[in-house]
Every structure is written in structure tokens, then in C-alpha cells.
């Protein structure tokens, strides 16, 4: 039986990917960011998941305004890094896990989540930066990845409650998969940031730290927080944090916090990161 053993939350700032790709990770600006992931790299090298379910949002790369799925699950064999306007990131292609992804799609739909099934999709920094942060620059990613893209660009994103409940349903789906697989769920995006308008550069560390605490200790309460609070307090792009609730919903009620990191800034954004293990 497949099982979810842990959750990883992390920001997915594109400038982090650029810094790594351009060999600037050792510069004074970037060193503290990457330092926050050193323990994480050791943890995941030891933890050795077979599959990562990577919850992220597409940033106008795979999905234009012609079609905007709320929840899209990637069921393909492989996903190529997207050209976001600077050419694709020089990272390996992402190998999917079609058997588990299709199984999840089927279970989730029967569990009354209205998934969009995607069999061809390029993946942008939202998905590849978290892999880079956790695995560095390998020739191949060391495990399979199931992309789960959430709309947070077109208002309204799914509610926090819906995201949390999707996480719970993902867990049920994974646990019904007959093969013996170790699955880690990533929730990515955030933390506080606003990329647009006169309020660009907003950072609210108090909100972020409170969010980290509540995500770990009282996720149900956090799942009730309305979109407006995120936008007001954490910036128009801070709303990405709802995706962390999907990861959290897939874990036990009680989790062990293995690692936490918080740093300001990376480009326009507060970087937050958690590793949570199921207590069981």
C-alpha cells in the first residue's frame, strides 16, 4: 500500500532558480537562502521518497486565460520545463508517475473533487524551484513527481477549506493504491509577497510566522481564513499560501516538525519552508 510519510512546504521564488542556474548561489545575497535548505537536502536524501505529489501553481506558463482549471493533475509520463520568457530552466525533465496519478484522478473525482486531468503540460518555476531547493542540481531528479496545479492567479482560487479537504482526499486516494510507495507531498508558493502596483514589495513577517505556527498546530483553523485576509496581510501573491493547506490536509492531525526556515528577502518575497513528518 502506498503511504504519505511527510510534507514539505516551500516558497518557489523564480529568482532562486535563476540564482542557482547562473551559478550565483554562493553570493552573499543568496547564501543564507540556500543555507536554509542544507538540512532539507540531507533529510530528503535519507528519506528517499518514491514519489512527490507537488502542489504548485502555474504562472501563465502552461495555462493562458483561454482555460483556467482550479485543480489540474498531471498524468503524463514526463513534463518539460517551460520557457517562461528567458528560455527553459536548465533542469532535467520531470518524470511523472502515470499509474498513481491516474489512480488519484479517478479516486478524487469519485470523491467529488472536480479535477482536470492533464496529459500534456510544461512545468514552470512553481514546480521546478522546489525540486532544485531540495535536490540541488542533479543530472536527473531522484524520484517521480506528480504535478498538481492549483489556480491562484485568476481570482477566486479555491478556498482554504477546499484545499485542506483536497489534501485529505489525496491521502485517501494514495492509501488505496496497491503498490508499496513512499509518497511525500509538497505544498509550494508564498510566503508574503506582492509583485504588482504601488504596494509591491509588501512583506508581513508576523503574518508569515503565525501562518507557519498554525499550519503545523491548528491547520483546521487556518483553513477557515478567507482569501481577503491573505491578500490584505500577505500581498496579492501571498494568496499562494492556500496551497500549503493541501499538503497539510494530506498529513496526520499531529505532525512532527522536522525543520523550519524563514528568511527575507528573496527578490520580492519572504521565503518560508517546513518539513513535517507524520507522527505514526
Amino acid at each position: 500500500m502506498a503511504r504519505i510519510t511527510a510534507g514539505v512546504a516551500t516558497s518557489h521564488v523564480p529568482a532562486i532558480g535563476a540564482a542557482l542556474d547562473n551559478g550565483r548561489a554562493d553570493e552573499p545575497y543568496w547564501r543564507p537562502v540556500f543555507a536554509g535548505y542544507e538540512a532539507s537536502k540531507r533529510w530528503i536524501a535519507e528519506h528517499k521518497p518514491d514519489v512527490i505529489i507537488l502542489v504548485y501553481n502555474d504562472h501563465a506558463s502552461a495555462f493562458s486565460l483561454e482555460l483556467i482549471p482550479t485543480f489540474a493533475i498531471g498524468c503524463a509520463e514526463e513534463f518539460q520545463p517551460a520557457d517562461e520568457g528567458w528560455g527553459p530552466r536548465p533542469v532535467p525533465p520531470v518524470k511523472g508517475h502515470p499509474e498513481l496519478a491516474w489512480h488519484m484522478a479517478e479516486r478524487l473525482i469519485l470523491d467529488e473533487f472536480d479535477m482536470t486531468i492533464v496529459n500534456k503540460m510544461d512545468v514552470d518555476h512553481g514546480l521546478t524551484v522546489p525540486l532544485s531547493l531540495m535536490f540541488g542540481q542533479p543530472a536527473e531528479w531522484p524520484c517521480r513527481v506528480i504535478p498538481l496545479a492549483v489556480n491562484v492567479v485568476q481570482y477566486p482560487p479555491p478556498t482554504g477549506n477546499r484545499c485542506y479537504r483536497l489534501g485529505q482526499a489525496i491521502r485517501r486516494a494514495v492509501e488505496a493504491f496497491p503498490e508499496d510507495l513512499k509518497v511525500v507531498v509538497f505544498g509550494t508558493g508564498g510566503m508574503s509577497h506582492q509583485l504588482q502596483g504601488p504596494r509591491a514589495g509588501l512583506i508581513n513577517s508576523a503574518f508569515d510566522r503565525d501562518f507557519l505556527d498554525r499550519l503545523v498546530g491548528d491547520p483546521v483553523a487556518q483553513s477557515k481564513v478567507p482569501h481577503l485576509d491573505y491578500v490584505r496581510e500577505a500581498g496579492s501573491e501571498g494568496i499562494e499560501l492556500v496551497m500549503w493547506l493541501i499538503m497539510r490536509g494530506a498529513l496526520d492531525e499531529q505532525v512532527r516538525e522536522v525543520h523550519r526556515f524563514y528568511h527575507v528577502p528573496a527578490s520580492n518575497t519572504a521565503v518560508g519552508h517546513l518539513i513535517l513528518e507524520n507522527a505514526g
Partner: peptide
């Protein structure tokens, strides 16, 4: 036309 068929016939 389930997942198995869909993957085979893509």
C-alpha cells in the same frame, strides 16, 4: 474508457 484504456490509446 477508463484510465487503463486512455493511457493505452492516447
Amino acid at each position: 474508457f477508463d484510465a487503463e484504456q486512455s493511457r493505452k490509446g492516447f
